[in-house]
């Protein structure tokens, strides 16, 4: 399947990824060749095959709904680019 530049721009937007204008042709070529590779799968009939999500078919473990972690907000926020009063700062969202 051949992608065009608009497809790549759309996917980049979905991924919230800014890609440089001059890189778009290269990404378009790369993605097209990766999707060509991947399309080999379509030749195989898998209608009766169950999808495999966990290699040992384990299911999600549940735990009791109890608080087990302590509050380490300050410790974790040491890596934050911008904080104030214990909150993460982002550009203004609501006028």
């Amino acid at each position: 399947m051949a992608l065009d530049q608009t497809d790549v721009e759309k996917v980049a937007h979905l991924a919230r990824l800014q890609i440089e204008e001059q890189d778009i042709p290269e990404y378009t070529r790369n993605l097209t060749s990766i999707l060509d590779l991947v399309s080999q799968m379509q030749a195989v009939d898998t209608d009766d095959i169950d999808p495999l999500a966990h290699p040992l078919d384990a299911t999600q473990r549940l735990r009791h709904d109890e608080v087990t972690e302590t509050n380490q907000r300050e410790h974790f926020q040491k890596n934050a680019p911008a904080i104030e009063a214990g909150l993460f700062l982002v550009p203004k969202v609501i006028e």
Binding site: V38, M41, V44, T46, I49, D50, P51, L52, P55
Partner: peptide, 15 residues
């Protein structure tokens, strides 16, 4: 379905 689900089905064949 055409990609991720399909790949997971192929994954079972490989296993």
């Amino acid at each position: 379905d055409a990609y991720y689900r399909k790949a997971q089905r192929i994954r079972r064949l490989i296993q």
